[in-house]
Amino acid sequence: MSPEKMAMMANQIATFFKTQPGSDQAQRVADHLNDFWEPRMRQQLAAHVEAGGDGLDPLVKEAFALVRVPAE
């Protein structure tokens, strides 16, 4: 998956949860990524964040701290 496509998909998730009431948006973005993104997709996201996170919504970057990145 291209980095642009991955960033767009992650940003779409953040865009939804940003509109939701409450103060746990980052947690809910992270939960969604943990629940629906296969490990290698989260690994790709991790690599992208480490490389600067170009094009990622700030909420995705904030949520990333709560994303579980499997080693395997």
């Binding site: 998956m1 496509k5 629940d35 629906f36 993104w37 296969e38 490990p39 290698r40 997709m41 499997p70």
Partner: peptide
């Protein structure tokens, strides 16, 4: 315990070689 690939993700992963 980890979720798997969805169809579009399978195709992306195939293009990436994994």
């Amino acid at each position: 315990p980890e979720p798997g690939l969805r169809i579009p993700n399978m195709l992306d992963a195939a293009v990436n070689g994994s």
